[in-house]
Amino acid sequence: MKSLFDDATAVSFRNDPLAMRVYTSQLLGRDKNLVLHGGGNTSVKIGTTLYVKGSGWNLDTIEKPGFSPVDLGALCAMAGRERLSDAQMVKEQREAMSDQSAPNPSIEAILHAIIPFAYVDHTHADAVATLTNTPEGKKLVQALYGPDMLVIDYVMPGFELAKHIYNLTRTIDWNTLKGMVLMHHGVFTFDDDAKRAYEKMIDIVTVAEEYLKARVSLPSTECARKADSALLSTLTEETSSLRGTDITAVLLDSPQALTLSRLPNLKNIIRNGELTPEHVIRIKPFPVLIREDVSAGMAEFVRDYRDYFDAHASGEHICLDLAPRYAIIEGLGAVALGKDAQEAAVIADIVEHTITAILSAEQLGGWGSLTLAQMFDMEYWELEQAKLKK
């Protein structure tokens, strides 16, 4: 991975740390192998204020108004609490903002606050996430990066993750670390210099990319056979009926998508988690698998999704719609299923990146990310559920 940092451009931001934060955030956001559609977050500490990426902003287009100014002391105090619901955390973070017109701070604001460097970068880098989503992922990452990389077992993003890292690092000298890898999630880098924080991220991801390049061979041959229009029409109609809205379908018939759709253990693989946790909110925990009969495949998906919900829900949970967000058509590729062209394009991007990661991990021992229980916690996160109860 190549650094996009340009010294001639950056010189104009030398005396404006928030402008520099905008610049390197946009550099991270430009590369879809680092973040996709709202993923990742960045921050800068200026005096007693943490400016952290706000909800609803994408890194590739973020500007100064996209950073939420939060009192650093208040955030660090939250990290010391024994318990804090994510809903209460969001409320208290907002109360600690110096500008109430700014967006809600990232749910990882507390984690950014406790990392003792001015610039903190967080991405969901495909290459690193792929390595963590293999059977020996933690050992592999530790061996690849050495003792100066902090490797954290998966904890759901939000207060619990921040609290876990706060407790874990009380006796650790952050200056001895070059970064932090969160298993099945992503990467953090940090420095008091924006360029160094950014280029640490590039270096870490490059190591993972080179490891994969040396050991993984991805397909490149196109297939002449395509999914027929009648199948796609039926799939779209049945998804529309389940979701209660019109559906836009995007066919994914890249060599990678075709290869995945032909794997003998396909059904097991597609139940083994997403590339990174937040993707489950956009594409659900698993796709519908279509063999020969669309209706049979959809009926199976509905049964499986109901079973998944019933197995993990409490009495307070509200079941989401039963429509899949994408389909794997056995032998023919995949189909993104969105409520409009924009959502379908987002889903297609996420699915394409996920497919590449799965095929890579399968050559390194097998694909395995989050459990169904962990995906449920993310998909049915209390803040998402609260929106349904209003």
Rank of each mutant, 00 (worst) to 15 (best):
W57T: 04
T61Y: 07
T61Q: 10
I62F: 06
P69Q: 01
D71P: 02
L75T: 07
C76V: 15
M78C: 05
A79V: 00
A79S: 13
R81N: 02
E82L: 09
R83S: 13
R83Y: 11
L84I: 10
S85C: 11
S85V: 09
S85W: 05
D86K: 09
A87Q: 12
A87K: 13
Q88I: 13
Q88L: 14
K91L: 13
Q93F: 02
Q93L: 11
S98N: 09
S98V: 08
A102P: 03
P103N: 10
P105D: 09
P105V: 08
I110Q: 03
L111A: 09
I115A: 08
A118Y: 00
A118D: 11
H122T: 07
H122F: 07
T123L: 08
H124P: 02
H124R: 12
A125E: 08
D126R: 14
A129E: 04
T130Y: 04
L131T: 09
L131S: 02
T132C: 06
K139G: 14
Q142W: 00
A143L: 07
G146C: 04
P147T: 06
D148W: 05
D153H: 06
Y154D: 00
M156G: 06
M156T: 15
F159K: 13
E160H: 11
L161S: 05
L161K: 07
K163N: 13
I165W: 02
Y166F: 15
N167Y: 09
N167T: 10
R170N: 11
T171N: 14
W174P: 13
T176Q: 08
K178D: 01
V181N: 03
L182H: 04
M183V: 02
H184G: 01
H184D: 03
V187K: 06
T189K: 07
T189D: 03
D191C: 07
D191M: 06
A197W: 09
A197R: 08
